[in-house]
Design a protein around this nucleic acid. Structure first.
Length: 261
DNA sequence: AACTGAAACAACCGCACAAAG
DNA sequence: CCTTTGTGCGGTTGTTTCAGT
């Protein structure tokens, strides 16, 4: 698929983009990123959309500081597996590989500094007891060079985002799964194929109303954007409400244009 | 109160792999 | 088969926030 040479937005996401992305991910699922990017009218690459979703907008994300327990796990698993962040992230529900990676970086820095300090101290006085604060993680410290970045063996093992065979990835919202989503219906009709069923857009809108089954409402929602979405999340609104909201956007969701246009 | 350095967070980039055509 | 395309991963960099002086 040749990407049209439209200018691609980069840099920080604005709130409206987030809302838009969440909207479309819940509509089409979190698989076809290129499609989602296009259909949503966001001037972002599919890649960028995925990243934003996975690292920031996903409803299952935990936010806030790592707990000591998590910290310990990260250190432990890192020493076991090296920098296989996505694999490590699988063991830390609600945490992303990016988050863990970032944590590790600062953790390493800290450690390096502590080491320097203790070396100096040892030189000065042989008394031990460097009262390192976060020493919980201490001994198992290993930097990436000491834990060779084990090459990704065909990486089916580390096709982690999809998880271990059969398992659904943590990142997988289970959004409407569209294995054979027929992109824009060739006939121009408003139909979408889901599995071996064909849904009309009306159906999709109904699907959209599924507030009861809405997996999102029952979850603790952590991402800021979910706070933004009035009382109930966008996808749990009635059809009318959601349409209204779209109208309010300075830039109406181009989805209609795409599907209809 | 202003400044500075460190830590935390967010995003991009390049590469590798798998699936589809 | 080969090429193209989409996706995921790890590394890296840029930005924001926080704490200490």
């Amino acid at each position: 698929m040749k990407m049209e040479k439209e200018e691609v937005r980069k840099g920080p996401w604005i709130e409206q983009e987030d809302v838009q992305l969440v909207f479309y991910v819940n509509l089409f699922g979190d698989r076809r990123w290129d499609f989602v990017a296009k259909v949503s009218g966001l001037k972002r690459s599919g890649k960028s959309c995925r990243l934003r979703w996975v690292n920031y907008l996903h409803p299952d994300l935990k936010r806030g500081k790592m707990t000591p327990n998590e910290e310990r796990l990260v250190v432990e698993l890192q020493s076991k597996w090296g920098n296989r962040w996505s694999k490590i992230a699988q063991k830390l529900p609600g945490r992303t590989d990016n988050e863990i990676k970032n944590y590790w970086r600062t953790h390493m820095r800290k450690k390096a500094q502590e080491r320097k300090k203790t070396k100096k101290n040892k030189k000065v006085s042989s008394s031990p007891s460097s009262s390192s604060t976060s020493s919980s993680s201490s001994s198992s410290f290993s930097n990436s060079s000491s834990t060779p970045n084990s090459p990704r063996p065909g990486d089916s093992a580390s096709a982690p985002a999809t998880g271990i065979e059969g398992e659904r990835s943590f990142y997988d919202t289970g959004g409407v799964e569209l294995p054979t989503l027929g992109e824009k219906n060739k006939t121009g009709g408003l139909e979408v194929e889901v599995g071996n069923k064909v849904y009309s857009m009306d159906d999709l809108w109904k699907e959209f109303e599924f507030s009861e089954n809405c997996p999102l409402t029952s979850q603790t929602v952590a991402s800021p954007i979910w706070d933004y979405c009035p009382t109930d999340s966008l996808w749990c609104m009635s059809e009318e409400e959601s349409k209204m909201l779209m109208m309010q956007q300075q830039q109406p969701f181009p989805f209609y244009n795409y599907m209809i246009g």
